[in-house]
Amino acid sequence: MSETIVKVNHMTKKFGDLLVLNDVSFDVRRGEFLCIVGPTGCGKTTFLNCITKLYEPTSGEILINDKPVDLKQDNIAYIFQEYSTMSWLTVEQNVAFGLEIKKKPKDFIKKEVDEVLEMVGLTKYRDYYPSELSTSMLQRVVIARAFAVKPQLLLMDEPYGQLDVDLRFRLEDELLNLWRQTGTTVIFITHNIEEAVYLSQNILVLTNKPTTIKARLENTLPFPRNVTSPEFIKIRSEVTDLIKWW
């Protein structure tokens, strides 16, 4: 199997006359944690939606495992900005949703769901409905649902953008643990530069519209990362400068 899981070649997206993405090309390695940062409104979500074919790119190609994206075949999970839980399903049923859709055997689903609920610390809340959960629990349900299908590619669109700082820190650490345990490839969109430096192995910096790739930075800081260390601050400043100056 190829080392490259995602290959984006000259992707362009227009909405009418508005050019949003302009000739974007990049690769993502298998098992990589890639963060995409850019100014607010630069088209980060459009970028992700094109990868997942929620939007059809105007031109260019996106390959997953060297083949055009096929949502039926490619095991992709997407975590949106909002906590998109199914309010009519319990925590357990929400987490099992993707496996049920894929028509996996019942005992397999039970085993996978138990495992992932344990990983995110929601085992004792399995029979609760989303309306009974706190914000952090809802976000964990969404993350658990994504990890339950053991995705080869996990796309996250500013998932912690609306959380307060301490909750965000906790969920970031949980995400890193899950990523290390599962080896899933993660593409994580954020406008929070500190978050990007804390989580990623590589950072893709986008320009304002029409969006192109300004730079790709490798982040070799060892885990766990210290946000106050000089090395961390240096990378954060580097990314900040790239976003500040056009």
């Binding site: 929620l54 039926k72 095991n75 909002e82 049920e100 299908v149 796309l155």
Partner: peptide, 23 residues
Amino acid sequence: VDPELIGAARMLGANNRQVFTTI
């Protein structure tokens, strides 16, 4: 219906019939 729910279901491999019945 929340379009993000539909998007999430499609990402998890749901076809049109499954999106209609489960979401």
